[in-house]
């Protein structure tokens, strides 16, 4: 297991380096000028100075390595300092990845936006899983019953309808027509007492439900297929022959076995919900990292976009690795060479 893990890590690191290079090169090759958005009255010399201060006149490989150093060495060091309070080396003159638009370090921007995204996305994923698993199990157990038919249809709809449409339909129904929930997410809202907590629940309800519905649709289909595959296996027949009740066969034997691929699926899905949240955050005006990315793209804020997209890539690679590891731990039949 350890050997396998180190081998996988050995592959993950070059993957990340190649991805970082691709992202950097793509953004660098593009015909784009960071001084393009500045007022026309700024003379050419000043423009050149601004470009120089951003380090743009350096050759490509130097800028790439500087960015790597900032991203992989300087920023982690800063984070460690902030958490532990220790000072490691010369922290004041350490170069940081700065946003071109706000001039503040990109990492600070991300940390500022992360809680909103984690709350909405994390909660929606948990809600989605909690809806999907029972539905998937019951659908499979009562295959072709009305419950299965309706469940399959709804999950097909949830899987096909884009989240921005479900989100807007929910806004039309629940905030415009019924005015139950606010249509936008107020990040400045502070939870102090029961009343403000209730408001927080109300403003989170719609974005969470939209994402939860989408996640549940995909997961329940997967869960159903997984249980179906196990239903006719020999160990189920043995359990039945021993006289075990259906309920305990389903909950103890089948569920455990069919959860294996589902758990992998859940781990693999974590990064995609982060990118999927970009849309939901846009619909409900949640100012999370998805919205940060969109504003960064609209204002051509290259360092911000670079760092955020790379962060998404890190998430994908990490969770792929995690999924493999979890699968190996949970399923003793899997033996990694």
């Amino acid at each position: 297991m350890l050997k396998y893990l180190s081998k996988r890590l050995f592959f993950a690191i070059p993957t990340l380096i190649v991805i970082s290079f691709v992202l950097f090169a793509l953004l660098d090759l593009a015909p784009n000028d960071p001084t393009g958005n500045l007022p026309q009255t700024i003379p050419q010399e000043v423009r050149e100075e601004i470009r120089e201060s951003l380090g743009l006149n350096k050759p490509f490989h130097i800028r790439y390595f500087k960015w790597m150093q900032q991203f992989f060495v300087n920023e982690p060091l800063n984070l460690i300092e902030e958490v532990t309070g220790l000072e490691i080396g010369d922290s004041d003159s350490r170069l940081r990845v700065r946003s071109w638009l706000t001039r503040s370090p990109v990492v600070d921007l991300i940390i500022e936006r992360l809680p909103q995204t984690l709350w909405v996305v994390g909660l929606s994923y948990i809600v989605g899983i909690m809806i999907a698993l029972p539905i998937g199990v019951i659908s499979a157990y009562k295959q072709y019953s009305w419950f299965d038919q309706i469940g399959t249809f709804i999950s097909m709809v949830g899987f096909s309808v884009p989240t921005f449409f479900t989100g807007l339909v929910m806004i039309i129904i629940f905030s415009v027509t019924l005015s139950w929930f606010p249509s936008t997410y107020d990040t400045t809202h502070v939870v102090k007492d029961l009343q403000s907590l209730w408001f927080q629940v109300k403003q989170m309800a719609m974005p969470v439900m939209v994402l939860a519905f989408y996640n549940a649709a995909q997961l329940s289909r997967f869960m159903r297929a997984s249980v179906l595959e196990n239903l006719n296996l020999d160990y189920v027949r043995t359990a039945r022959a021993k006289g075990l009740r259906d309920r305990s066969i389903l909950l103890k034997h089948i569920l455990r076995n069919s959860m294996l691929p589902v758990i992998t699926m859940i781990a693999l899905g974590v990064p995609t919900i982060f990118t999927g949240a970009i849309i939901t955050e846009q619909v409900f005006r949640v100012n999370g990292i998805g919205q940060l990315l969109i504003t960064g793209i609209q204002s051509a804020d290259i360092p911000l976009v670079q760092s955020l997209s790379f962060l998404f890539a890190v998430l994908i690679v990490t969770f792929n690795l995690l999924a493999d590891v979890i699968y190996g731990i949970l399923d003793p039949r899997i033996r990694y060479e």
Partner: peptide
Amino acid sequence: TDLFLALPLLPLLLVIIMLFRDT
């Protein structure tokens, strides 16, 4: 293929469109 699967696709697509739209 694995490398492409590890790319954050939606952000990447947005970036590609932002960069090459005008050209």
